[in-house]
Amino acid sequence: MPKARETVLEIDLDALAHNYNYLRSKLHEDVMFMAVVKANGYGSEVVDIARKLVDLGADYFAVAYASEGIALRKAGIETPILVLHPQSVNFEAIIENCLEPSLYSKFVVEEFIKIAEGLKQKNYPVHLKFNTGLNRLGFSEKETALVRDLLQGTEAVKAKSFFSHLAASEDWREREFTLMQIHTLRKLAIKLYDELGYRPLLHICNTSGINNYPKAHFDMVRSGIGLYGFGNDKTEDQKLKPIGTLKTIISQIHHLEKGQSLGYNRAFIAEKPTKTATLPIGHADGINRQYGNGHAGVIVNGKYAPIIGNVCMDMIMINITGIECEEGDEVIIFGGPQHATEFASKGKTISYELITGIAPRVKREIINN
């Protein structure tokens, strides 16, 4: 593997394939796989990720917003795409680009039907989301009759799926709550199947649901974080391969004498002679201020080097006392010897926030394509 010569996020498509195949192996052959690629493929590079997943056999994609789905269509992705949080202003564009919206309230359904009827659509595929306990988006169980009436009142749309979202599928302490969510969705779906006279797809499992609730795989599962190498569990993490490695280089080395300060607000004061390095990455790149002042560190030539002083917009400084290194040497922020979950935990956050927060100005480099 060539050494980094600038700040770069390496995206390993072999690791993506490993994760997809591992998660797929847990499913019955008839269960469909929806790959969640929102937020630029969880902070990676969505077009390359999506193309690889098409090759691997993904049945569906999910994005958060219409613009993300449109970008995939422009890149030539023809796989069905679910838009998880569509806005009514984008409904016409959703139809023009053959995207499939999640409809989660009376207002949203009526607005989409109005647009679909105006565009002379018939049986346009839509996905009905039910709120079974996350209390974010979705129809309540009490609104099942409303959903039925809305669907039966038009020929412009037809339900492609009924789905919900698990709130705590990774937490065994919340198993009773999770089973309640699963039971609620199954119960209302069966009722709607009978009343509508047809059977849309049913899905509720996210990555942790795939691992922990195999009887709830239903017709399709949705995986996001698992595809990118994170299982929300130490055992599962060991079976997955993080696809991203964030690297940078040493810009300059300094030698501080005892009592000298470093960085903004003199946040670091050398208590003894200290060798430091400045790196070209900062909070504008997604390495936020909570990682500074010794809370987290990076890997330099196989050795751990703590981040010292305040994180700057474009730079961080690290303590390399006792580490053999030179200006221009590669530095690993996360990936390889330092799992992103470990790095994130030192900043009191989670891997999701860390990896999706890597700024667009950080170069993405696809490897093992």
Rank of each mutant, 00 (worst) to 15 (best):
Lys3Pro: 05
Lys3Cys: 06
Leu16Thr: 06
Ala17Cys: 00
His18Cys: 06
His18Tyr: 05
Asn21Ala: 08
Tyr22Pro: 05
Phe33Tyr: 06
Asn40Ile: 10
Tyr42Thr: 10
Glu45Pro: 00
Val46Lys: 00
Val47Cys: 07
Ala50Ile: 07
Val54Ala: 07
Ala58Ile: 02
Ala58Thr: 14
Tyr60Met: 13
Phe61Ser: 04
Ala62Tyr: 01
Ala64Thr: 15
Gly69Leu: 13
Ile70Lys: 09
Ile70Gln: 03
Ile77Phe: 01
Glu78Pro: 00
Glu78Val: 08
Thr79Gly: 02
Val83Gln: 04
Val83His: 08
Ser88Pro: 09
Ile94Phe: 02
Ile94Tyr: 02
Ile95Pro: 06
Ile95Arg: 00
Leu99Gln: 00
Tyr104Ile: 12
Ser105Asn: 10
Lys106Met: 12
Phe112Glu: 13
Ala116Trp: 11
Lys122Tyr: 10
Pro125Arg: 10
His127Pro: 05
Lys129Gly: 13
Lys129His: 06
Asn131Pro: 02
Thr132His: 00
Thr132Asn: 04
Leu134Asp: 14
Asn135Arg: 11
Leu137Asn: 02
Gly138Asp: 10
Glu143Leu: 04
Thr144Asn: 01
Thr144Arg: 11
Leu150Asp: 11
Leu151Phe: 04
Gly153Ala: 09
Gly153Asp: 12
Glu155Gln: 03
Lys160Met: 14
Phe162Gly: 07
Ala167Trp: 04
Ala168Pro: 00
Ala168Arg: 14
Trp172Leu: 14
Arg173Trp: 03
Phe177Ser: 12
Met180Pro: 00
Gln181Gly: 06
Ile182Arg: 05
His183Gly: 02
His183Phe: 14
Arg186Tyr: 13
Lys187Trp: 10
Ile190Lys: 13
Leu192Gln: 11
His203Ile: 09
Ile204Ser: 06
Cys205Phe: 01
Asn206Ile: 07
Gly209Asn: 10
Ala216Ile: 11
Ser223Cys: 15
Gly224Ser: 13
Phe230Gln: 05
Asp233Asn: 15
Asp233Leu: 10
Asp237Ser: 02
Ser251His: 10
His254Ile: 12
His255Tyr: 14
Gly259Gln: 03
Ser261Phe: 12
Ser261Thr: 15
Gly263Met: 08
Glu271Gln: 09
Lys272Met: 06
Lys272Ser: 14
Pro273Val: 14
Thr274Asp: 05
Thr276Ile: 10
His283Trp: 14
Asn301His: 11
Gly302Met: 07
Gly302Asn: 04
Pro306Lys: 12
Asn310Glu: 15
Cys312Val: 00
Met313Cys: 02
Asp314Ser: 09
Met317Ile: 01
Asn319Thr: 07
Ile320Met: 06
Gly322Tyr: 03
Cys325Glu: 00
Gly328Ser: 05
Ile332Thr: 13
Gly335Phe: 05
Gly336His: 11
Gly336Cys: 05
Gln338Phe: 03
His339Glu: 15
Ala340Tyr: 00
Gly347Trp: 08
Ile350Met: 12
Ser351Met: 03
Leu354Val: 08
Pro360Ala: 08
Lys363Gln: 15
